[in-house]
């Protein structure tokens, strides 16, 4: 998945003057989205920070044609737009740009529906691991142990593995990405855009406000998530599951940085006990052994969407 930076358009898809907080991962991700998809993208944005980042009417910082929509209707609105473009013979890539809440919680039924129907859309979950727009409440993608304003003593449940759930929908394309690895993200966007049918990319997006770290550390924290193995980059495509190059070194557990390096930078994990940290370490190990197994099965030619379903 080599990517030549010179081939990436230098046109700006996020104009100066957006309303994002300093160090915002969503604004960063949107820039990469513009670089990858250019003028063909039409954005569907359910409620969340990215609805606010655009700024105030009559101005809009997004240089994409953009439809804001009610919280639960990202995938369904996009499905209708894609259907219309198809019958009207218009060339467009319909992209849903939704938060973890809009994706994994309130929007989950419409997401699952669009995936099962294989609607021709590219769905991106911008995962900052909580409802940030309403002031940092837990979502089903908030990790174990994290403080939020609805989990004052730390969340007691693990993050749900949404990318695997999406693979079990037997869609043509699922990938994870990170705002710290733009080459990987852009390449995945481009690949996804070339496929007809339902595509899902789960973008890890550390938020300085909600996670309580300094605004100049967004990329650093995102990178540590990969280096500690907390977040794993992979791609599921043509029925094949493969761990992506930035994450490959960490198949070897000894290469992973201690997770504490990731956790200690973030105020949301301040209350963790030793036990909690052990639980998180075990979560990382479990996740990895699972992904490595999936890659192995997939190399043996197995349809892993079926295997996941049966687990």
């Amino acid at each position: 998945m080599a990517l030549n930076v010179r081939l990436v358009p230098d046109k700006k898809y996020i104009r100066p003057g957006d309303a994002a907080c300093p160090g915002c991962p969503e604004a960063l991700g949107l820039r990469y989205l513009g670089m990858a998809l250019g003028d063909k993208a039409v954005l569907v944005v359910p409620a969340g920070c990215s609805a606010v980042i655009q700024g105030i009417i009559p101005r809009n910082a997004f240089h994409f044609p953009t439809v804001n929509i009610v919280f639960a209707a990202g995938a369904s609105t996009a499905a209708g737009m894609a259907a219309a473009y198809e019958v009207l013979g218009k060339d467009a890539i319909v992209v849903v740009w939704a938060g973890d809440g809009g994706t994994a919680d309130i929007g989950f039924a419409s997401l699952s529906g669009a995936a099962e129907r294989n609607d021709n859309i590219l769905y991106i979950c911008v995962d900052n691991e909580a409802y940030m727009n309403t002031g940092i409440q837990r979502s089903s993608l908030t990790p174990y142990g994290a403080w939020t304003t609805t989990t004052w003593t730390g969340k007691k449940e693990h993050k749900k593995d949404l990318p695997l759930i999406m693979i079990s929908h037997k869609v043509p394309y699922v990938a994870t990405a990170s705002i710290a690895y733009p080459h990987d993200f852009i390449a995945k966007l481009k690949r996804a855009a070339s496929i007809k049918g339902f595509k899902y990319i789960h973008l890890h997006a550390p938020c300085p406000v909600g996670w309580k770290f300094d605004a100049d550390k967004t990329v650093h924290v995102a990178k540590l998530a990969i280096e500690t193995g907390m977040w794993v980059l992979f791609e599921y495509y043509n029925g094949r599951f493969s761990i992506s190059p930035p994450s490959r070194p960490y198949i070897d557990k000894s290469k992973r940085k201690p997770v504490i390096e990731y956790l200690k930078l973030q105020g949301r994990f301040r209350g963790l006990s030793k036990d909690d940290i052990e639980r998180i370490e075990k979560y990382i190990d479990d996740t990895w052994s699972w992904y490595v197994l999936l890659e192995k099965w997939s190399n043996m030619g197995k349809d892993i969407s079926r295997l996941i379903e049966r687990q």
């Binding site: 929509i69 369904s76 737009m81």
Partner: peptide
């Protein structure tokens, strides 16, 4: 579009 709910039905035709 054989949607999975009415919320999605109206959102989908709105998108169209």
């Amino acid at each position: 579009i054989r949607v999975e709910s009415e919320h999605s039905a109206l959102a989908a035709v709105y998108g169209a």
